[in-house]
Design a protein around this nucleic acid. Structure first.
Lengths: 222, 222
DNA sequence: CAATGAATAATTTGATCATATTCTGGCTCT
DNA sequence: AGAGCCAGAATATGATCAAATTATTCATTG
């Protein structure tokens, strides 16, 4: 068991992760078409792995299959956004509560370090870094909650609003981005699960309502 | 435009649906291995469509990828079951509440008819029919709620406990299966959304706790 | 005569399959 | 029991066929 020269992941897994990140961090715009042949070219892989990655992302709601045989990045409706808000408003606090009951001091340090990085990204106006770090912060929280099924559900929601989030943040700049993480980390330190859950709930609401407002604005101007 | 000889669905979609039903209604036992070549033989399709169907089901949590290149039907742990109970206890009542606000009289008749069929299946001890009708009843409710994302989440949970549910019901017989549907239908008729939500919550708890108890028993005897 | 529209041709893209290659797991032999 | 070999299954590629969208042409009309 060297652990060093371990086999690399299969191609379809790599393609999946690349495409997933592109959706999650808004490299693909909402409504944009995704073609198999386009990806075989741009990612330099055969069609079988690409097909599998696309099917997976469709199943997760990250991509949309359009009746005919076209695939695209979903364009959210106002109702969709409301649903996402409702779902996250329940899932995220629930997971934060569980995480507070289970978190170790090492993990708290880890989360704190991530939040420092996050602040740095906001300060530098680095949108991509903000999106990535913010996601990883929440994702780490899901893991600590030790509820793999609920974590899967919460994780899947990010894929659905990722593209829209990028658009919204691109318009508003990185200054007034939500970050209630400090409240939450303090609550976790104090082992006050209820307060941690409340803090996360506010973080979620603040971020998601921004998406909703931005959507309503763009709907009005169009 | 005859509309008669419309094009049949693509093979990968057909394979997906067949496999999905097999998982959902317990034709595949928990822990059972699922091989690509086995399916190409038994379903008479090429490997590409089979691969795509399997990836999709893995993404939905209906199948499990086991590190190496093996795939199997997931074996639930006690913690997994607790998570599923928590998730359904929130999702199903929420969707029932929305459905009550939107349901038409025709749809109520439709649900009532399904429940009659369900009673018939229970009376005849037809387990497969019970599982299928019970699923379709809840699924129809999800559709009526007009919340596609939340419905997707709820729908995905069925795939996770489908195999275990079959095992449990097989052990207990069809007599004391949960069916709080009559309470719920009455509440929907009266447009009492809160009561409908409570009824569904009891239905869910009753069914899922049975799974949990059965799991604990089998864990104790093993 | 210019412009619009339908019908058809051409190109692009998706779906499926057959085949080659690689890796895992079991079995045997020492 | 441990190392190496063998069988079988999964991964990945490219070719082939089918479908859909786009481009083009021609006829008809104002």
């Amino acid at each position: 068991m060297s652990g060093a020269g371990e086999n690399q992941l299969p191609t379809h897994e790599l393609i999946y992760r690349q495409l997933r990140d592109q959706v999650l961090f808004g490299d693909l715009a909402p409504g944009q078409a995704v073609t198999i042949q386009g990806l075989t070219d741009s990612l330099g892989a055969g069609m079988t792995p690409v097909r599998e990655a696309i099917r997976r992302l469709i199943a997760e709601g990250a991509l949309e299959f359009q009746g005919n045989r076209r695939v695209c990045v979903p364009l959210l409706s106002a109702d969709n956004i409301s649903e996402l808000i409702v779902a996250r408003q329940w899932l995220d606090p629930h997971l934060a509560l569980r995480a507070t009951e289970r978190v170790t001091l090492d993990e708290l340090d880890e989360l704190t370090a991530m939040d420092v990085e996050l602040d740095k990204a906001i300060g530098q106006g680095d949108l991509r870094a903000y999106l990535e770090l913010n996601y990883r912060f929440h994702k780490r929280l899901y893991e600590i909650a030790e509820a793999p099924i609920l974590a899967d559900l919460a994780d899947g929601l990010w894929l659905r609003f990722g593209p829209s989030l990028r658009v919204v943040c691109g318009r508003m700049g990185t200054q007034n981005l939500p970050d209630k993480h400090k409240d939450m980390l303090a609550a976790m330190h104090a082992r006050d699960a209820e307060r941690a859950a409340r803090a996360i709930r506010e973080d979620v609401i603040q971020g998601m309502e921004q998406v909703r407002r931005s959507f309503e604005l763009s709907a009005a101007t169009n």
